[in-house]
Structure formats: C-alpha cells, structure tokens
Design a protein around this nucleic acid. Structure first.
Length: 645
RNA sequence: GCCGGUGUGGCUCAGGGGUAGAGCAGCUGAUUCGUAAUCAGCAGGUCGUAGGUUCGAUUCCUAUCGCCGGCUCCA
C-alpha cells in the first residue's frame, strides 16, 4: 500500500465519469465534496496487500493516527488514487481494504470525521497544501515493512531482556576450584593467578580491558611472503585469493576439520545453497539480528526481452549471500520426519559465509568478508544427550587446537541455573583440555543457548579471536520447526548442539601467528607445504636427488628439488626463507655413503647425519594421525612461477 | 562507517616541481659450487586512481580507492 499525505487548507473533488472498475456509489458518498483543514490520504492498494490486509491496514491506520496527532486536522479524507504504484491490486480486494482502513482510522481517531472518496471514478480535485514541514509526506507499507517493524520491536524487547541479565565472572580451574575476578578493575590483571595462565591473561586484557599493542600481526606480511594468500584487487575488500601453497594449507586444515566430522563423529554431510530469498521472513529475521550486514544478490527482470533496454533488476526478487551456516540445514530438517529412535543426529556442512563487515573492521586472515566455516549440528533427544554431544564436540575441537599447536584460552558462558546443576560436567571438560577457563554466568537466559564456550586463539601481538564454539540450544528447535516424534506419538522440539571448529582462514591466521612467536618461525610438519627440500650440490647430482625424492614421496612426504642454477648457499637461503623444516644437501658424499645430511629447522637449523629410514620414521612420527595431501606444485623449482614475494 | 598512518617496477626500498634510481627476483651468458646471497650483461615503472594549481606534477592541493592500526562490530 502506498500513501501520500497532504495537509490541506482547502480540498474539494467532484466525480467526472466512471472507469470500468467504478464502485457503485452508495448514498453516503457524495459526488462532490469539499473539506477545510483536512489531512488528505492519497491511497493506492497494491497487488500484494490482499494477502496481509489486516496487518497493512493496521500499520497504515497507525501512521494516519500518528500524523493526525501532530497536524490536528479537522477532517481526514482517504482518497483512492491509483497513480502511486504500477503494481495495483484488484478492485475486488482494494475496495474492502480501503473500507477496512477507514473503519480502523475511525476507531483509532474517534474525534475526527473520516471520509472516503469513491473508488474507480474519474475525479477532478483542487488541493491547497499548507506547506509547513509536515504537510507533505509519503509511506510505502508492505508485508515486509510490517514484518520488519514487528522484528524491530522484538529486537527492542530482546535488548531490554539482555540489559536486565546480570553477569558474573570467575575463573574455573580444572580441579573444580573457582577464583573470582573483578572485570571492572584493571588491577585484577596483576593478580598472581594469571602468572600460571598467560593465555587467559592475554585474552582478558585484550577482550575485557581493550588493552592493545597497536602492532600489526606479522602474519599479514608473511601470508604474502610465503605465497599463501593475498587480497584480490578485482574483488571486494576482505576477499582473499589463495595461491597454490595457501590452498594446500587451507585444504589440510579443512581435511582435518572434515575428519573430525565424518570419521570421528560420523556426521551426515550436506551441501546447501549459497543464496537465500531475502523476502522470506525467517531469512530476513536472521539478517536483522546480524545488523543487515549481508551481501545482496539481485537478478535481472525476466520480462524485459529487448537488449536495447538497460538491464533492470527484478523487483521483489532479492537474494542474500549466506552469512551463517544454518539456513540450509534448518530448512532441510524442518521438512524431515524424525523419530526419537534416530536421535542423536549429526550433520556436517562446510561452506563459505559472507558478511559485509564495515571496511575498518577487516584485517588480514583474521577478519574477512568471505570465509569458510565448517559447521557441525547435533540434534538430541534431551538435555542429557545434549551434554554428551557437547562433551564429544568439545574434546574433538580441543584435539585439533592441540594438533595445530596454537595458543588459546577457554571461555564458557552459562546461564546460572545450568551452572549450578551441571558444574561437574564443565570441570570434566576442562580436565580434558588441562586448562582453566574464564566463566561468565548469566542470571537469565539471554540468547538461545543455555551453555556455550569459545576457544579464543591468541596471536603473536597479544590479540585474541574466536575459533571453535559449541552452543547448547535448549529452546530454539520449536521456533525453527525442527521436531521429532516421541514414543507417545507427539511432536517435540530437539535439543540442538550448534558448533563450529571456526573459520579455516582463522586457523591459518593463528597457526602463522603461533609460528611467528618463535625465534625461528616454523609450521607444524603436517601443515608445512614443502616438508623436505632436496638441494643437489651441483646439476650432476640431480638424478640422485630424483631418486631420493621418489623414496620420500612414496612415504607420503611432500618433497621438492631446487634444481636451479644457484650456489648451494643461496639455495639454502631460499629454503630457509620458505620455512622448510627439512633440507637435504646431496652430493658425492651422500651418494657414496648412503647417509643423508639433514638440516633441521626444528632443531635450530643444525645438520644431522642420518639414514633415509631414520628420516622417514622421524617425520612419520610427527605427522601421525594428521591429514596428508601431496604437493600441488611442480617438484622441480625451476618449473615454478613466482606469485609474490 | 569514523579517526590516524600509508601507497614509487614481481619484492625491499631511495629520490624529489623539469616526465624516475638501487638491490633481489626474471631473462641471456659464464660458473658446477658442501649448509643463509658466484660473476657479467639485458629487460622491467604513464610513481594507487581522478581532478586542480603550474609553462611543466610522480613531487604541491582536493577528492577517491586499497592496505595497516584504533573506535565500533564480530567467526
């Protein structure tokens, strides 16, 4: 519905003829009429209004009331006026909607007479506008704006609830002891308890007290130097391109996340669309809680066939690029038939998400507009099963953090009554990861979860960023319409464990940052791009080098050969600049003795003499249970292009 | 988005009102080397982009974009 308001000193109209859709004039409606000090409401009923007439006339009548209170007109005239829209409603629905609007206005504003001009007649009119700032205005009311208003009110109500919730912070050790911390006082950072827990200290300083070093995280430069990733200038800010080495690293971490989901937890893997209909209230509702920081996808208007007409985007057909992982899954499960006998059900999906972060918020691999999130959701029978799933997920994510060798702090947020009842379960989790945690207890349920935790990764400049999270959702399944049928044959909402290992890009960020904390930066062996670099002393030894490469490759080790015409010293320099963990210099000596000369980055770059078998065993020991992928680059360095650095 | 910083060949940087210079990487040739840089030659840039001032701008001014940091926000 479109409304054009004019506050008029004098307004008069007269009917001049019938249109084909003219309504019969009942005796109460005059062929001619004039008003003084009137609020004229030129009104167009649009096609889509019929479906939500009640809500739309309600919203429109509220607008008229609001305006009347300010303008204090002597009359209100609802004037059917088809020319405000090119998407008109059928007369058969428009007339009742106008009447409904009129009666709602009468109820809301009993003190002012309300008229309605005839529908479907040619009319002449004279209008004089008062010309003060409020005397002209317009409104467009649709099902969506109505839904948006409702949503905004819900958000406001929610914000008020959030404000009422009281938080209490303390540190819970894995022996069950609680150490209170006062987060209003910076001096708590000097507390002795933090001497033992530096990661927790860094997290609290950064996140709660906003103590920042202002230094640039070195991984931003290093990701380019190591030819891992860089910004793509032909895309939007916050979108990276990954070079072959970065892609390998990305895939190794993804493989590990996938192993957890598919091999360790036996999830069902799914794949759902990247774009969703922005006109669906459930999608839009989520979008608003994300502060509408989404990418829109417009599609061309179908009807325009003539290529000479500049492209027009279809009205009412707007899509959003997914900004979270659960749209597709929840939509899928809403339609699924689930029995209590099938629970728990676990699903895995790894997908790109897009968020239109404000430009100043972007940073290296840590904060992007496009990032990849592997998600695991467990749908559970009851709270007990929910806690079991929670424990399982917590442990697996903890394993990954340990395998990646990153520094992290654990933070739990729990509704007080759940903490009181289930403290032992939390302590049990902490005992697994052998870490104390910062605990925030909430006096009331603030969000959809009763319990959640975050692994907060710590970078080399004492900043933190969220990685893995598990959230125990005790009340939202009903809202999403995800139900199972219990033994009595009744529908019941699931307990949902939402979880993610965290964005792959962030894992790369923290793995690089962790490497850069060391004097000689090095990646864990399983994630090193080239694991062994073979440097032939001269070109005469290339064939021997190839033979060694064969042996190492067949043991699933990523090897390459620097066959370029550089001096040996220079080739070692290049290998060190690439952070390659094992460097083999091969020449006559090795060929004759069968012993290898191995320069080991993990051991202060010292050189060791060892057999091939020992080397392979040493490396296999370090990469045990970790994903493997072969090198995605030419093995001979002379065949490799330079991408950056 | 706001505030501050920054932008010169693939990389690291120098310079400065008279249309740019080095090292490395690249290419050509020589060299066949034992644990962080072998030698020589060649080729590479409308100095982020667009306006303005000027006889003349890469240099001065304005706007704009990217990147980095802070605020805010967040995985």
């Amino acid at each position: 519905m479109k409304l054009l308001f004019i506050h008029s000193d004098n307004f008069c109209y007269r009917l001049t003829g019938k249109t084909p859709v003219a309504e019969d004039i009942d005796h109460k409606i005059h062929k001619e009429n004039s008003f003084k000090n009137a609020l004229i409401v030129f009104t167009t009923v649009e096609r889509l209004d019929a479906g939500n007439a009640g809500e739309i006339t309600e919203a429109a009548s509220l607008d008229i009331k609001e305006l009347s209170e300010k303008l204090k007109p002597s009359n209100i005239v609802i004037y059917p006026y088809a020319h405000l829209s090119n998407d008109l409603g059928l007369p058969s629905s428009a007339i009742p909607i106008l009447d409904e609007l009129k009666s709602k206005v009468i109820v809301k504003i009993p003190e002012i007479p309300v008229y309605r001009a005839p529908f479907g007649w040619y009319k002449g009119f004279d209008v004089s506008c008062k010309g003060h700032p409020l005397s002209e205005s317009s409104r467009h009311i649709t099902a969506l704006t109505v839904a948006g208003e409702t949503k905004k009110n819900e958000i406001k109500i929610r914000e008020n609830i959030v404000r009422e919730v009281e938080s209490r912070f303390f540190i819970l050790n894995y022996d069950g002891s609680e150490i209170p911390v006062d987060l209003t006082d910076k001096n708590v950072l000097n507390n002795d308890i933090f001497a033992k827990y530096p990661s927790l200290h860094k997290f609290i300083a950064f996140e709660e007290f906003k103590i920042k070093t202002g230094a640039e995280p070195p991984s931003i430069e290093v990701m380019k130097k190591l030819e891992l990733a860089d910004h793509e200038e032909n895309s939007d800010s916050g979108h990276l391109r990954f070079y072959p080495k970065g892609t390998l690293m990305f895939k190794l971490i993804s493989d590990w996340a996938e192993d957890i989901a598919l091999k360790k937890l036996n999830c069902m893997e799914i794949e759902t669309p990247l774009i969703y209909n922005w006109n669906k209230p459930e999608i839009r509702g989520q979008g608003e809680s994300f502060h509408e920081r989404h990418y829109s996808v417009m599609v061309p208007e179908d009807k325009i066939k003539d290529d000479a007409v500049p492209r027009v985007f279809a009205a009412g057909k707007e899509f959003v690029l997914r900004f979270a992982g659960d749209f597709g899954l929840f939509s899928m499960l809403k339609d699924a038939k689930i029995s209590y006998k099938q629970l728990p059900l676990r699903f895995y999906e790894s997908s790109k998400s897009f968020r239109y972060e404000r430009s100043g918020e972007l940073s290296g691999l840590r904060r992007l507009r496009a990032f990849t999130m592997p998600d695991i959701h467990s749908f559970c029978l009851n709270l007990e099963e929910g806690f079991n799933e929670y424990r399982e997920l917590y442990r697996r994510y903890s394993d990954l953090a340990e395998a990646a060798g990153i520094e992290y702090a654990v933070v739990f947020r729990i509704v007080q009554e759940y903490y009181d009842k289930h403290k032992d379960k939390i302590v049990n989790l902490l005992a697994y990861s052998k870490k104390p945690a910062l605990i925030e207890t909430l006096s009331k349920m603030k969000h959809y979860w009763a319990l959640k935790h975050e692994f907060q990764g710590i970078d080399s400049v004492s900043g933190s960023c969220q990685l893995s999270t598990v959230q125990l959702d005790v009340e939202d399944a009903k809202r999403y319409g995800i139900n199972f049928v219990n033994e009595k044959g009744e529908k019941e909402g699931c307990i949902i464990c939402h979880s993610s290992v965290g964005a792959i890009e962030r894992w790369m960020y923290l793995i690089l940052e962790e490497a850069l904390k060391k004097e000689i930066p090095a990646l864990p062996l399983w994630i090193s791009i080239t694991q062994v670099r073979i440097i032939p002393v001269s070109t005469q030894h290339t064939s021997f080098a190839l033979k060694l490469m064969e042996q190492l490759s067949s043991s699933n080790i990523r090897v390459d050969i620097d066959d370029r015409d550089f001096s040996m010293g220079k080739k070692i320099m290049f290998a060190e600049e690439e952070w390659i963990p094992y460097i083999l210099v091969v020449g006559e000596k090795e060929k004759n003795t069968g012993m290898l000369s191995v320069r080991n980055r993990y051991k202060a770059r010292k050189t060791f003499n060892m057999t091939m078998e020992d080397l392979i065993n040493e490396m296999k020991e370090q990469t045990k249970d970790m994903p493997f992928r072969s090198l995605m680059l030419p093995e001979m360095l002379s065949k490799r292009p330079t991408f950056a650095g």
